[in-house]
Design a protein around this nucleic acid. Sequence first.
DNA 1: CATATTTAATTTGTGTCATGAAAAAAATAT
DNA 2: ATATTTTTTTCATGACACAAATTAAATATG
Lengths: 396, 396
Amino acid sequence: MQDQRESGRHQVFEAIRNANQIARIDIAKATSISPASVTAITSELLSAGLIKELHPEPSPGSAKRGRPRVALTVCDNAFLIAGMKIADRQLSIVLLDFVGETVFEFTQPIPERRMATDELAKIVRDGLHAACAACERNMHDVAGLGLGMAGLIDAERNYIYWSPSLEARNVEFGAALAKVLPMPVFVDNDANLVAKAEQHFGEGRGETDFIVITIEQGVGMGIVIGNKIYRGERGCGAELGHTKVQLEGAMCRCGQRGCLEAYVGDYALLREASVHGQGLPHDSVAALYAHAKAGDATARSIFERAGRMLAMGLVNVINIFDPKLVILSGEQASLDFFDGDRLLEWVKSSVVQVDAPLPEIRVHHWGDLMWAKGAAAYAIEAVTRLKIKELSRDAA
Amino acid sequence: MQDQRESGRHQVFEAIRNANQIARIDIAKATSISPASVTAITSELLSAGLIKELHPEPSPGSAKRGRPRVALTVCDNAFLIAGMKIADRQLSIVLLDFVGETVFEFTQPIPERRMATDELAKIVRDGLHAACAACERNMHDVAGLGLGMAGLIDAERNYIYWSPSLEARNVEFGAALAKVLPMPVFVDNDANLVAKAEQHFGEGRGETDFIVITIEQGVGMGIVIGNKIYRGERGCGAELGHTKVQLEGAMCRCGQRGCLEAYVGDYALLREASVHGQGLPHDSVAALYAHAKAGDATARSIFERAGRMLAMGLVNVINIFDPKLVILSGEQASLDFFDGDRLLEWVKSSVVQVDAPLPEIRVHHWGDLMWAKGAAAYAIEAVTRLKIKELSRDAA
DNA sequence: CATATTTAATTTGTGTCATGAAAAAAATAT
DNA sequence: ATATTTTTTTCATGACACAAATTAAATATG
């Protein structure tokens, strides 16, 4: 038994986090838990320091008379949470409070692109330490660290099948980090973390089911079904970038042929440009794009074909999942390369035709720290789960 | 409240159905519900007539001494369930008892390929009536009808966006059927029903997550996640057959280009054969296959390309879902056309490479009535849910 | 300014339910 | 015949959600 209470606690807490601030009676309405139970549960959460009352403010929705409703909020300073993204040559770190507000941002170069396991673990540790020091916090105050990196990762086990940042394959990275860090660490694939970021801070707020597609050097996908990230059996699903769009097609950096990434990734675009010769820049996609924009037919055709391939990938995702919402997420530049309107046109005309509204496709431009914030969001979730479970244990 | 009891009832019932016959104490072990609660719940189910005790048999696992365990089974004659598949020109119907044993099989031609809504509803009604009459049962004894047909269908609403069997688009077929049939009807896409059939009677028994791919005239897919069929937002997901495998590719009967089906479907194979001329048969895939088998290089290349495209589709499914199990399901013939070993070879070499066991791929040959049995399985599930909900209501 | 009214939150009592422990049941072993 | 073993049922307990009643805290009203 006792699990029903735990689920109640979760529901109430999520309602509060979701609403930002909300009176007990509205929690009752939102969760359809009785006011009596809401009182019981909130008083627990209150005394555990996870939430707090927002006294003076006249909570919104309050009527003219009657006892004023007192709003509850998640206690922002309950825990300090860290999110980290390991990129090619750079470590980005954010420290968030428990409601997800940024406390501090921090960036640090990484000496090598590819490192030994313990070495990278140390880099992570030192980076977090430095970040904490820089904002005069103690690393031991950090209640949880979310860590994102490229590669094939089984998040459940903090296990890395392969990552461009690690020399070894099949690494128990969670264990390696546990040796050097005091707080629980949650490792995940970077595309999943973008999905988390969208869910908590972005276009996915309030949505229970959606798909996030990221376009950077590669193409990534995150699948959210029923508020949860779908990970597959071995934890390495959602590899849209290595979905095949052409039989015996272009060579991909994964060593196989015909992957979507091999047509849409930046290296794919540059490869085309370099083959053609004719004075097209082939060291920067932005430069190549400038040529296309200026009217160069060859450059244009390169982006056009990539766009069509991307559309194909999107169509396949939609035909398979019939999602409610697809979020194209990435930095401004990477998304601009593909003419959005034409892309949507292609997608619309190639999707299974049904007399029902098409899935919504939203484009979302993110800054540099999206990945790290997603990692932090993931950690916030995990820490919340831990703390509420603790509460349930203590009550017993 | 009271939902925990309902969930308990479901768990217990599923455990019984799953095990075929099982003693209370083993139900307790299997569900980790206490023996006390199992007693309470089973006595309810018992008095509702959903299950029965299997007295005389020495239930398996019983020890030498001690009170003998008495096994429980689902009461086979609790309800009569019908499953029906509307195919091109044929109606197949099965009547199953409540444990899924076939009571009667029945087939009837359909006059037209494509009909008006009410006309088709009448065909369904008359078919069911005839089937019942043929085995001396009353149609009113049928507690539920599962109905499968090709097309884009929102099963939740018994709503048909489009079907080759219906003249109209966007049909409230559930409502049309309710007017002429006394029992609840559950309509679904045929690929989903194959998934149901696999889950209840086939290779999916005991699996919580798997993907079924059917190869017939078209290519279909059913996705089972957490024991439930994934349907997408509008109920028209899992359209693997119209996934694009070639930019600007071959014309598909859906009017678009490059669909997987346009390379793998039977009409696609015959089209190739007919274009080439050279005395290849182009009216029967079986005949074409005989040529290939006999060594005809052109015929071979037709099947080979189709096989490669099919492999591509499978690879994409695996890369996206990272499933535990994929079931290739269909009639013997349709599967034989594609050399199984080579297909698997292609799939293995094109899937994202991880040092973890590949998803299992099982091939399952089915007879003609698979579709109807899947429909019946779907109805059994739905009726069970209804009856247990009724029980919960009555208890209140 | 006292009192009514209104709305929110809390308290109280009740009923449901799962469960552990004890008892009963039903067999075999001695 | 009695002990032992194993399954099932009964019983008492405790957790919990909730409806109803109560309290709290504000505004409206005369």
